[in-house]
Amino acid sequence: MLYINCPHCGMRSQNEFSYGGDASVKRPELNTEISDKEWDDFVYNRKSLRGKHLELWQHISGCRQWIKVERDTATHEIFRTFKADEEVA
């Protein structure tokens, strides 16, 4: 069982959350020239890191907010959690 520290609600079990994938993926800016390669990278291509991975989760059975979680994909250790709009240094 993972325990995720929701920045809005505190420590909760993974059962309350749903996963939203890699949080480092950025949608290309609107109204700019975008190459097919940039769209591919946004829609399909993923680094799928082994180790520290910044990812989106939604506290679906809680506050329903999207949050960012920094987690190790090999050990499942959770290092930090952030609000969705927080910049991650």
């Binding site: 069982m1 993974q14 059962n15 994938g21 991975h53 987690r71 994909t73 090999a74 499942h76």
Partner: peptide
């Protein structure tokens, strides 16, 4: 399990 993982072991939920 529903989230990226290289663990080769599962989670009970």
């Amino acid at each position: 399990d529903g989230y990226n993982s290289y663990a080769q072991r599962g989670n009970l939920p």
